[in-house]
Write a protein that binds this DNA or RNA. Structure first.
Lengths: 316, 316
DNA sequence: TTGCTTAGGACAGGTTCTGTCCTCAATCGA
DNA sequence: TCGATTGAGGACAGAACCTGTCCTAAGCAA
């Protein structure tokens, strides 16, 4: 029946006798198998008459997906970018799905995926959060899923590097960073680890019995460990352009509030002024900076460089 | 056996008697079923002895993937971003995979996916090519796969809008744009359509017999229809910073060639100067513009705006 | 060495599947 | 309207397969 399901997925439309020939069964048996698929919840439509046939429709449940090699690699690549945050709100699910796909990938597809990753630039080179290696994320996700203890090197905030042996519980995406909530075997206590500071994760092959978290869930645990550190710069700039035009460029990385027909207030919270400078440079509109002072300095410096570039030709 | 496969995919490790209990079969039958899966090409590893059990390994082929609802939505979202070009070289495969996943998605998951897409910003708001609606791409991909004729509205280069009835052949990704190669029924000839100019695509339910292209493949056909239009601006800028530092920011959208220890040549081909201006503004390094003249003007204009912003505080 | 797990053969009994034959019904084109 | 072509599905005989039971063998960790 997997063969039948596989055939139905590769092509939308199949005349019954063609399917039967492919599966080397009689027409009656083919109709019985179709009926069995339907009983299992798959939606197989049929058309009688001239040019009749069968087709698998989206039904009550997603059937097992039978993927070509290239498709599997594309799925893994897409999930990697989602796990990196390009699709807000799906990071954790993307990592789970990626772990599942990667765990089952034949080695030759795994190598193609890795080769692709190594020659793919990050879609957002000025990353808003630290870059997290998708391979590390995937390994951690697998360990969480399988209740398998792991070891890794960890660099904490005060730059000490330690070797850790932990029982991973859950991965949490919070504020553009990934955290691993795990039981630290050496410290005999729960810890929350920034994934961007994790390196050389290794599966140990040892399984453990999952422990109860001291908090209601992993997200709560991670938050409890926070001292609320506001982002470094709160940018406020008045831009003399319509809000919708500015929004188009800013995207989801800032808030744009109309203050007049052709003026708006742009607010951003950032750790680096690089991106607001880039943004303001590209807006073909006058603007006035309300805060912070550092942004004015950065703009002045950029203006000097851009101005000097304009002048350079004149001297030739 | 799908139940067994499903269980093996959800968790790495299963003792045999636990699996047997879950499936409500005897241990012997469980071992027979495992053997059948192995005969079908799945790699099921087993460990005897204390803490023994079964686990599904990546083997010679990717097994059918059994996905949770959230995982399917994450896969679709990731494929959408890949189809949009965030992962170079996989656009066509991503669209194919997306078409397959979407075709089989139960309506409730389809709605969740659409809802997510409508509230997701493009990962690159300053798109290098025209934005292509992933839903349109998916519809076109399905029609290509199923040899089903479609209709759509089309705005050609000279802004005429026409209604078309075509037999789609192939989607081609070329130079950051998507093209549909199809047989136009009304004009009785092959045509290549820019997907960003397609709207309201509709499946007709009518299948057709695939025709032979007049060229060797669809890519050749699309290229034959090109007048080679060079991109509008060829940017050449000398930057007084190390090449690797500049590369980090530029990513794959420009070429960076070292010309000295702490200087390099940046070359980009763009249709809009917006992005080079942004880039140069954010580089904390002096630079000299070799070409084009328009970039100097744009930098001077940006410098004026950024400079004015710096001056605004002084007046307060 | 012992206990715990998987591996797999032999067997009886029961269950399911298959192909054949057939009627019925829907669809499409002439 | 009619004929051809497709799917739907019942009845039947025969074959094939599956299951659980019982058992021995083997690998692994304590």
């Amino acid at each position: 029946m997997l063969s039948l399901l596989s055939l139905l997925q590769t092509h939308r439309y199949w005349p019954g006798d063609e399917l039967a020939a492919r599966l080397d069964v009689s027409g009656r048996t083919l109709r019985r198998d179709i009926e069995r698929l339907r009983d299992l919840g798959y939606s197989v439509d049929a058309t009688r008459g001239v040019a009749g046939g069968y087709q698998l429709r989206a039904g009550g449940q997603l059937p097992p997906l039978l993927l070509e090699d290239d498709e599997a690699v594309a799925i893994a690549a897409g999930l990697r970018t989602s796990a990196a945050g390009s699709v807000g709100g799906l990071e954790e699910t993307s990592v789970q799905a990626l772990a599942k796909v990667v765990a089952l990938m034949p080695p030759r597809l795994r190598r193609r995926m890795d080769a692709l990753a190594s020659q793919t630039d990050s879609p957002e080179p000025w990353s808003r959060g630290p870059t997290v290696d998708a391979a590390i994320l995937t390994t951690l996700a697998q360990a969480c899923r399988d209740d398998e203890s792991i070891t890794f090197d960890y660099v904490s905030r005060d730059a000490d590097s330690t070797h850790r042996r932990v029982e991973p519980h859950r991965l949490v995406s919070l504020g553009r960073r990934w955290y691993l909530v795990a039981w630290d075997r050496d410290r005999q206590d729960w810890r929350s680890f920034r994934v961007d500071r994790v390196s050389e994760p290794g599966l140990t092959g040892q399984r453990f019995r999952a422990r109860d978290l001291p908090t209601e869930d992993a997200l709560t645990f991670v938050r409890a460990g926070f001292r609320a550190i506001p982002q470094r710069y709160a940018v406020r700039v008045r831009v003399d352009a319509p809000a919708d035009r500015v929004s188009t460029t800013v995207g989801r990385w800032g808030d744009v509030t109309p203050v007049a027909d052709d003026a708006c207030l742009l607010e951003m919270k950032v750790d680096s002024l690089e991106w607001p400078v880039m943004l303001l440079a590209s807006l073909d509109a006058p603007f006035a900076i309300d805060a912070p002072d550092e942004l004015r300095s950065a703009c002045a410096a950029a203006a000097a460089r851009l101005g000097a570039a304009g002048a350079a030709r004149t001297l030739r």
